[in-house]
């Protein structure tokens, strides 16, 4: 546990040292702020005391930002060879993978924490559905964790950050909207399977305030598969 934290801390530090963290925070808050308060179907346009508008924007911005955060996590270490020094320390592959995963997730949680003033403001404007808002945040964290896990995996398979980024985006697109798009055209059981694989299906139900075990299982499966695959790649590179 201590080793995981040592690795996470360094990763988080490197996000801030390289300015990535600041750019991500500013861009995320800028986008979500703009579309929540000022432009498009914002809160004043919808005239409801709800953070649905914010969740909709965050859903898309995180989809783009997370691959940009995760792309260097293993690719850079593979390229410079620091991975070799890291794995010959008294840590195992799992501690490294989870340490990196948690660092990125923590940065996202920090970004989301900065939007709590939105929540407080809207709560003062009218009767907000507290339950749905909290589960909305929970949904964003689960989606983020899924994308971080996918991004870390794609970063591990090569030593090129761009490959990691594009591949994470490509896999993300499948879950983000391609599956649900295809589901509309497909029929029968095929359609049901595709709907289940679509992240948007699960996010919609969670952000409405419904926490269903099948949604939770879905997100945890993606996270688990992503992390297991990453560990498998690390093992393969050493044999």
């Amino acid at each position: 546990m201590k080793q995981i934290w040592v690795i996470s801390k360094r990763e988080l530090q490197s996000f801030f040292d390289s300015l990535t963290a600041y750019i991500m925070l500013i861009a995320f808050l800028g986008f979500s702020g703009l579309f929540t308060w000022l432009y498009g179907s914002d809160i004043f346009f919808v005239k409801q005391a709800s953070l649905q508008a914010f969740f909709g924007v965050a859903y898309w911005t995180l989809f783009f930002f997370i691959p940009a955060l995760t792309m260097r996590q293993f690719a850079e270490e593979n390229k410079t060879g620091t991975i070799e020094l890291l794995l010959t320390r008294p840590v195992n592959d799992w501690q490294v993978v989870i340490g990196k995963f948690l660092a990125t997730l923590l940065l996202i949680v920090i970004a989301l924490a900065f939007t709590i003033p939105y929540y407080i403001t809207v709560a003062n404007l009218g009767n907000i559905d507290h339950g749905a808002t909290i589960t909305g945040y929970l949904g964003l964290i689960l989606i983020s964790a899924s994308y971080v896990s996918i991004g870390i995996f794609t970063s591990s398979i090569s030593n090129n950050q761009i490959v990691g980024f594009l591949l994470a985006l490509a896999i993300g697109i499948l879950f983000h909207f391609l599956f649900s798009f295809l589901a509309q055209g497909a029929g029968g059981i095929f359609s049901d399977v595709l709907y289940y694989l679509s992240i948007s299906t699960h996010f919609e139900s969670i952000s409405r305030g419904v926490i269903d075990s099948k949604d939770i299982i879905f997100f945890f499966s993606i996270i688990f598969i992503g992390l297991v695959s990453t560990e498998a790649v690390l093992q393969k590179n050493r044999s």
């Binding site: 410079t80 070799e84 020094l85």
Partner: peptide, 17 residues
């Protein structure tokens, strides 16, 4: 791993630290 010190060939280091 606890008892070994290793300097790899290319001397990889975290440049930004």
């Amino acid at each position: 791993k606890k008892r070994i010190g290793y300097l790899p060939e290319s001397n990889p280091l975290y440049q930004e630290m």
